[in-house]
Amino acid sequence: MNPLIVSGSPHIHGEMTIKSIMWGVVIALLPAWLAGVWFFGIAAVIVTLVSIASCVLFEFLIQKFVLKQETTINDGSAVVTGLLLAMNVPSSLPWWQVVIGSLVAIGIVKMAFGGLGKNLFNPALVARVFLLISFPVAMTTWPLPIESRANVFNFDGVTGPTPLGSLKTQLAMGQTLAQIKLPSYTDLFWGNIGGSLGEVSAIALIIGGIYLLYRKIITWHIPVSYILTAFIFSGILWLVNPNRYADPIFHILAGGLLIGAIFMATDLVTSPMTAWGKIIFGIGCGVLTIVIRVFGAYPEGVSFAILIMNAFVPLIDRAFKPKRFGEVK
């Protein structure tokens, strides 16, 4: 007889593993990514492959040669980071900038903090912001959907503004909303607009979000509170002055709000642990996003909003404890 195995209870384990969570996120991102490929063509595929490959490679190299620990690239977390980063940049971004972004995401934001689970900020978002500040032109040159499909390296003439971008610049020129030509809700909904390669199609992102909820990888708290807050806040502004402020549905569908609310803010590592904490986190993200979009210098505020709220997560975790069973006050 073999020696019996001894350990404390429980003696069985659920099916969910880090691997299944990470690949679940990848599957959930696929519809939005495919929409990006449909609108922006082969360039989107190249950016994605470069991003994923370099993220995985950097993780492998750092773990193997710098930290000298077991490599964990199999768990899929680097793939998720790479895919998210690619989906948050324009498909026209030069490949070497994508590699730099990957290095920032994996090397600085993830590994320097201690690897998986230890990072304070969302790696893909920090990398995106880093690229935005370092290469502002490349990062705000948006290929036009459909028209730019055939282009792989030369996007001259087939670029245009994002809906939020044109809103911002034309408002600054003193036009009223009625005078500004914005894409229709249908285009916003299906994704026939300029923007980062993964953020354009609202319907694809929502499908991914439903899949994540179904698999119980995320809970409803952050996406719902984030989107609802952004809706209410921008709605109030719109009611105050519809000539100056865009309507709430436009704000929800345009830009990176949906990918942010469903995939970036819900990143397990950098979001709060309790239900109320998540709701507060979502509200903070929603308010900050609209504040930056409406009053800030940048047309888009999702990345900054989520990163700022990331910094508050330890505090939120401290302040919002779950209600204990039979708690005696």
């Binding site: 020696p3 019996l4 195995i5 001894v6 350990s7 404390g8």
Partner: peptide, 18 residues
């Protein structure tokens, strides 16, 4: 060894387990 321990590698915990 007559058994194989598969819990937390800490004497304090092994002691209360077996």
């Amino acid at each position: 060894s007559k058994f194989q321990y598969d819990g937390v590698k800490s004497c304090a915990f092994a002691h209360i387990t077996f």
